[in-house]
Design a protein around this nucleic acid. Sequence first.
DNA 1: GTTCCAAATGTAATCGATTACAGTTTTACG
DNA 2: CGTAAAACTGTAATCGATTACATTTGGAAC
Lengths: 403, 403
Amino acid sequence: MSFQPITQIKTAITVDFGVIILRYVIFVIDYIYTCYCLYGVKLYKQKDRCALPQPMEGPSKQQESLAFMTNIKKVSELAGVSTATVSRTLKNPELVTENTREKVMKAVQLAGYRPNWLATSVKTGKSNSIVVLVPNLVNPFFMRIIEGIEQAAQEKGYSVLLGDTQGKANRENEYASMVLTNRADGLIQLDHSFPFSANDAALAEKVPMVSVCERIEGERRYPFIELDNYAAGRALTHHLISYGHSRFGIIAGQRTSQIHHDRLAGIKSVLNEEGIDFSEDMLVGGSYRIETGIEGVQELLKRDTPPTAIFCFNDDIAIGALYELKRQGLRVPEDVSLTGFDNVKVSAYMDPPLTTVDQPAYEMGRRAVDVLIQLINRQPLSRTREILPFQLLERGSTGPAKA
Amino acid sequence: MSFQPITQIKTAITVDFGVIILRYVIFVIDYIYTCYCLYGVKLYKQKDRCALPQPMEGPSKQQESLAFMTNIKKVSELAGVSTATVSRTLKNPELVTENTREKVMKAVQLAGYRPNWLATSVKTGKSNSIVVLVPNLVNPFFMRIIEGIEQAAQEKGYSVLLGDTQGKANRENEYASMVLTNRADGLIQLDHSFPFSANDAALAEKVPMVSVCERIEGERRYPFIELDNYAAGRALTHHLISYGHSRFGIIAGQRTSQIHHDRLAGIKSVLNEEGIDFSEDMLVGGSYRIETGIEGVQELLKRDTPPTAIFCFNDDIAIGALYELKRQGLRVPEDVSLTGFDNVKVSAYMDPPLTTVDQPAYEMGRRAVDVLIQLINRQPLSRTREILPFQLLERGSTGPAKA
DNA sequence: GTTCCAAATGTAATCGATTACAGTTTTACG
DNA sequence: CGTAAAACTGTAATCGATTACATTTGGAAC
C-alpha cells in the first residue's frame, strides 16, 4: 500500500460520506415516489416499509450506446493479422502458429471480443436453437420434460426457445414457423396437434420435428417418443380390479389426443376380459386441470350407481377429485379409490398420497433432443418411434372396494 | 373430375392395397423390434400392447437436403425485380407500386419464401430474443412468471430463450453470455445472483438486465420488480398473532437471497413490536423444496418448546411441512398453524387449504418484459424499481392457537 | 412536346462472421 | 544450398438479408 498523509484520508472520508448522504436522500425521495405510485399515500407508515435497499445509480449508464460490441475486424487490426486468422484462432486453433495465437488471444482479451453469434449462424446456416411447443407451462409434468430437453440441448450446444401455445392453433403456427425462417433448426411438439398452418404445410414436410408424450394426429412422418399408455391403462385397471372394484369412473383430459385413446383402450380391454361392461356414462372430463377433477367427481357421484374407483388421466385432475370427494364427506380410499397419472412431485405428499403412473419425463425430454438432432443433421434414425416403459406407483389413494 | 375407365380404377385400388399391406407388414416388424429393444421378449403378449398406430413412412423423406430454403434472390428473379424491391415489398409495402407488389407477392407465394431471420437480425443488429434465467423449472410459481414473460414478449415481437440454471453459477454464466454474443438482446434474472462471470463483468455493465422477484445482490445498476416482502412478512405475522400464537417457527428457502432477508425482517419487526423474542433457533431450512418442509418440521418439533405456528417461505415447503405434521399425528390448524408463500395452484386444494401470500406472478413477468424492452431500446425508465402489492389469503391452515 | 419533380426501382455497400483459394514462409531432405 | 512439400497467413467471395444512393419512370403543369 502506498503512503497517504492522514489529512488526505480524512478529506477522502468526508467527501465519500457526503456522497453517501446525498445518494441516500435521492434514494429516499425516489422510494417514496415509487410507493406513492403503487399504493397511494396511506401505506407510508415507516414500520410497514421494507428494509431500505441500497441506493441505486439509476439507469443513466444504460442510456449510453452499446459501445461494447467489438467485431472481428477491430481485433484483427489490434493483433496485426487478417480477420481470417482471428477466425481460425478461435475456431480451429490448430491451424495457427503458437506465436500468432498468442497475439490474437491478447487482442481478443484486450478488446473484450465475443464473436457475433448471429453472424456466425447466418454464415453456417444453422441457428443451433430448437423451439419447444408446450400447451401449458404451469404443469410440472411438462416442465420436467422440458428440463430434460433443456439439459440435453445445452450439452449438445443448442439453446431452447420456449413456445407457450396455450393449446391455441395460431400461437402454434407462429412458433412452428420459426423453423421455416431459420430462427430454429428443429421443433419439439408436446401437444398432439400438427403445429403448422395450412399455408406452411407444404414447407413443413421437411422440417425436423419430434413429438413427445403425444403423437401428432394424422401424421406419420414425424418420429415420436411416448409412454406405453395402453399398457399403463391396463396396469391401472388390473390394480383396481385386484382390489375388488367393479364400478369405475374415468375423468379424462383432452379427449381428442392419442394418449387419451390409448389409455382408454387399455382400460376397456381389461374390463372386457373381466366381463365388466364399459359405458360412456363412466367417462367425464375434458381438460387436464384441477377444476376438471372437481366437476368430474360431482358428475360421477350423480350417477345411479356411483363408481367406487376413479381413473384420473393426470395428477392435477386427481388432486381436484380428491379435494371434492373429501369435501363431499367421502373417504379415500375407504369409500372411493383414486388413481392419477404422471407422478408429479406433490402427488406423493397429498393426503392420502396418490397412486399414479410414473412417466420418465426427464428422460423422454432428453431422448427427444437426441432424435431431433439426428433429424437436423440428416442422420438416419435407427427407430422412428419409441415407446417407453412406465411404472405403477401404488400409494395410499387406492384400496379394497367397499363390501 | 376427369373420366377414368373402370378397369384402371380397379388396378389402382389393387396396387394401393398391396402397398398398404406391405407397409403394414414392415410396420409390424419394426414395432416388434422396438418392443424387443425396450422391454425384452416377455411383454409381447398381444393384449398388453397398445392399439397399433398407423404405419409410418419412415424418416426417408427427412434424409433429403433442406431444399426448401428459398432466398430473396430467387424470389427477385422469379418476380423479375431486384432484391431491394422484394425486401421493400415485404417490409415497407407503401414504397412499392400496386403492380410490382402483386408480382412480388405471387413470386413469394410460388417459391414459398420466408425471409431468413438470421440474416435480418445480423443486418439490423437485433436478435429480438430475450433470455430468462430460472433456477428451477418445475416450480409452478416461476412458471407463472415465465408465462407472463412469454406472453408479453410475444406481443412485442420478442421470443424467449429458456435458461434453466439450476442455481449453478457456470450455467448462469453461459446463458448470461448470450447477451454478449448478440444471441439475445436482454436478460431477465429470476434468481438473486449476478449472472455474469468475473471475466464478463466489465462487458456486463451495459447489458439490458432486469430481475424479478429477487434483487441482484450487491448490484444497484439493474432495475428490479419484486413483491413487498417486508410488508408480507409483517402481514403474515400479524395474522398469526391475531390468532393468539406466540411460539413461532420459520422454514426458510435460500437464505442468502434478498427476499429472505426482507421477509424475515418483516416478521422480526412485528415480533419486536409485540414483545416476542426472536431467536435463531426458530429459523430452519435452506431451500425451496418439499423435503425442506419435512426436515424443517422434524427439526422444529425437537425444540423444548415447539412452535404452534410455522412460517414456510414458499408453498412447496408448506406442502412438505403439512405432510410431515400430519404424519407425526399433529392436526393443522388445531395443533399447529401453517402459512405458505406464492399461492401456487395446488395450495388451495390441500387438506387443509394453505393460508398463503398471493404474488401477482404473471403480472410481474409482464412488467419485467416492459422494463427490459425499454432498456433494450435505450429509453429512459420512469422508475428503476417496482414493488408490487401482495394479497394475504387466509385459508384453512391457520387457526387459533391451542390454549 | 418539354420540363420538372416525385415516386419507383435498381445498384452496390454493408452487417460480422467463415472459408476457398492464393500467396508466403517454414521445414525436410537430398 | 536448393527444392519440394507442408504449414501458415492473407485476399476476397460468400451467407441472406437491408438500405443509402443512383438511376429510371411516370405524370402534372405549362
